[in-house]
């Protein structure tokens, strides 16, 4: 990997963003180092996806700056493998699994004509990495939700990224598939930085090493420090944790007693 290890992968300073008169994000400071596995959590409408789009340079901040690998996002985002929410595309689209993964090679591709053999090899390698190589010729419309998510991860990996960014990767898939997905992500985290957006806070502790809470303001926590205070601050009121398989810290349990 070409990434320079002491330079932060993502560096956000004093950032504010608004679509209209009300800020979606205000006064955000954030630094994500190489090799981290970070989850961005927060309620719907809290600005998680907006933050991700700002990091990718798809939106311009109203104030402050975003640096990706030390550069403006538009210049360095080719080093990011991006997985959008699965609802973003037409599930009936006539394409095979390998067709979709090959789209991850569009940037390095010569600019016209068919994909090269090396592009096809790279796409197949990413499919192997997510365990779907035997489905390469299958139409995407025939896949299950979990398989579809893996195809999108393979597409993100096809460009050999240094940073993987995922928007709600566990949406619309069952718990077993979600668990497998986190297993895969933590394996990928051995060689690249992983940042994902999720509203599924129950998953946070097991694999993820730190959590960024987004609800207009942004707070950074190592997972061991997620407290009831923090959760209440993000979600505005007490929320019920439905999943209990993650290890709650002592502080994490205290808030139940308080409330």
């Amino acid at each position: 990997m070409s990434s320079n290890t002491d330079e932060p992968v993502i560096e956000i300073e004093n950032l504010s963003f608004a679509y209209g008169p009300d800020p979606v994000l205000a006064d955000v400071h954030l630094q994500i180092e190489s090799g981290e596995f970070v989850s961005i959590v927060g309620p719907n409408g809290g600005g998680k996806t907006t933050l991700m789009r700002l990091i990718l340079g798809l939106l311009e901040p109203s104030q402050g700056s975003v640096k990706l690998f030390g550069q403006p996002p538009a210049r360095s985002r080719h080093r990011v493998g991006y997985m959008p929410q699965s609802m973003m595309y037409d599930a009936e689209f006539p394409a095979s699994v390998i067709d979709v993964v090959l789209m991850g090679r569009l940037g390095g591709h010569r600019g016209f004509g068919p994909f090269r053999r090396s592009d096809r090899r790279g796409a197949l390698r990413s499919l192997e990495e997510v365990g779907l190589a035997d489905l390469a010729r299958r139409p995407i419309a025939d896949l299950s939700g979990g398989q579809r998510q893996r195809v999108l991860i393979a597409r993100a990996l096809a460009s050999d990224p240094d940073l993987l960014m995922l928007d709600e990767p566990t949406n619309n898939i069952d718990l077993k598939a979600a668990d497998d997905l986190y297993e895969l992500l933590s394996r990928l985290n051995q060689r690249l930085t992983v940042v994902m957006v999720t509203h599924d806070i129950g998953f946070v502790s097991a694999k993820v090493r730190s959590v960024i809470c987004v609800n207009r303001q942004v707070q950074f926590h190592p997972t061991s420090e997620i407290t009831g205070e923090c959760i209440r601050e993000i979600y505005g009121s007490d929320v019920q944790l439905i999943r209990h398989d993650h290890r709650c810290s002592a502080e994490g349990h205290e808030w139940k007693r308080d409330s």
């Binding site: 080719h78 959008p84 090959l102 016209f112």
Partner: peptide
């Protein structure tokens, strides 16, 4: 024919194609 892959890319997922530098 020459730009089949690009056209397919923008038809399927325009934003992803943009991030890939298309």
């Amino acid at each position: 024919g020459l730009f089949f892959n690009q056209f397919m890319g923008i038809c399927f997922d325009e934003e992803f194609a943009r991030l890939r530098g298309v």
